[in-house]
């Protein structure tokens, strides 16, 4: 369990902003801006954060759909940071991806059968009982009717399409699956079915998941460890229970307190304890100096603007719990009802 399947260090992805006829670069969107992270074999690592925090870009770097601007990605002992498309091909067997939108991630002109068979054909995987049989087994595995082999994606509901995407990702029996918001486009009851399916498959095939989502309750349910991202950085990472019990970073605290609890009896308490963040996430083109969260943080002081807090373990925390904050939340701190002074103009 402790062996790392994937290790990234100093990972950066900057998307250039160009201008004019000669596409002169005038700036960059710093989507991912220096991440060190390990994914252990067999675990589920949850990546959470608000839109624009770089969690999807991170997922795409892990699968090398994108090439990093800087930093290193080591998968299964091999450095894959700058491997070419064809060099990556054999490795694609081991890393697969499930996408958020089950509508745009399946080719509408291909049958389900050919969609799921494609990875097997591209990788020239021998299928002793024939391709069709292999695909039908996969369909059954994800809870779809194998008879529907010849149907097109539009004949399926959203939840079923997501299952097709999962079957495709499983076809090559990968070691790791990066799931980018795999359930956020689905209805509540269907969401839970897909979460349970992912759980079962992980047990059956000993899969390693990187689960990217903005829904903190789903991430808590499925993950072993959770990393919280903000503006291209990991601000806090810990074992699941540790993180949800003792969040240290003010952003993590705010994020958790904002999740509505389905219990009207706790309504008043939830509202009292809520830390309301003002304003929006700043632009990743020109992120704030020092700590990136300081513009929305109620604990920010001068040092936060000048010095970037490193991601470190605090003395009283277990070693696996790291926080990037100058003034982390301490035990029993009265964050309760703390609302930032006013809306910044």
């Amino acid at each position: 369990m402790s062996e790392n399947l994937l290790e990234v260090s100093g990972l950066e992805k900057h998307f250039p902003i160009t201008k004019g006829l000669f596409r002169r670069q005038v700036g960059a969107v710093r989507a991912v801006d220096g991440i060190d992270l390990q994914v252990r074999s067999g675990e589920t690592l949850g990546l959470v954060g608000e839109s624009g925090c770089g969690k999807s870009t991170t997922g795409r770097l892990f699968t090398r759909i994108l090439e990093p601007t800087a930093g290193k990605i080591v998968f299964d002992g091999k450095d894959i940071s700058h491997k070419s498309f064809s060099q990556m091909r054999p490795l694609r067997r081991d890393v697969q991806m499930i996408f958020q939108d089950p509508y745009s991630s399946l080719n509408p002109r291909h049958t389900v059968g050919s969609i799921i068979a494609a990875p097997l054909q591209i990788q020239s995987i021998p299928t002793p009982q024939g391709l069709k049989k292999a695909v039908q087994e996969l369909l059954e595995l994800v809870g779809l009717n194998p008879e529907h082999y010849n149907r097109y994606p539009h004949e399926f509901s959203g939840g079923q399409r997501q299952r097709i995407g999962i079957a495709r990702a499983l076809a090559l029996r990968p070691k790791m699956i990066v799931a980018d918001e795999p359930v956020s486009a689905l209805d509540v009851s269907i969401q839970a079915q897909v979460v349970n399916l992912l759980d079962d498959l992980q047990r059956e095939f000993d899969l390693t998941y990187v689960f990217i989502a903005h829904d903190l309750s789903v991430v808590r349910h499925i993950s072993d460890r959770v990393a919280v991202m903000y503006l291209g950085k990991v601000v806090e990472i810990a074992e699941r229970d540790e993180l949800y019990k003792n969040p240290r970073h003010p952003y993590t605290v705010a994020l958790m307190s904002a999740v509505p609890v389905p219990d009207p009896a706790r309504r008043d308490r939830a509202q009292r304890e809520r830390v309301l963040l003002t304003g929006d996430v700043p632009s990743p083109i020109n992120p704030p100096s020092g700590c990136r969260f300081r513009t929305r943080c109620w604990k920010a002081q001068d040092i936060c603007a000048t010095e970037e807090p490193p991601l470190v373990t605090r003395l009283e925390d277990p070693e696996s719990h790291q926080t990037a904050c100058h003034f982390p939340i301490v035990e029993d701190e009265q964050v309760v009802g703390r609302r930032p002074a006013s809306t910044p103009a």
């Binding site: 269907i190 969401q191 839970a192 979460v195 699941r240 219990d263």
Partner: peptide
């Protein structure tokens, strides 16, 4: 019941499995 069973909740302990409604609407 199925809707409530489908939701992981931050105010409760982590359940081993969610208990969603089977099938589709």
């Amino acid at each position: 019941w199925g809707l409530l069973g489908s939701m992981p909740r931050l105010d409760r302990d982590v359940r081993d499995r969610l208990t969603p409604v089977k099938g589709t609407p």
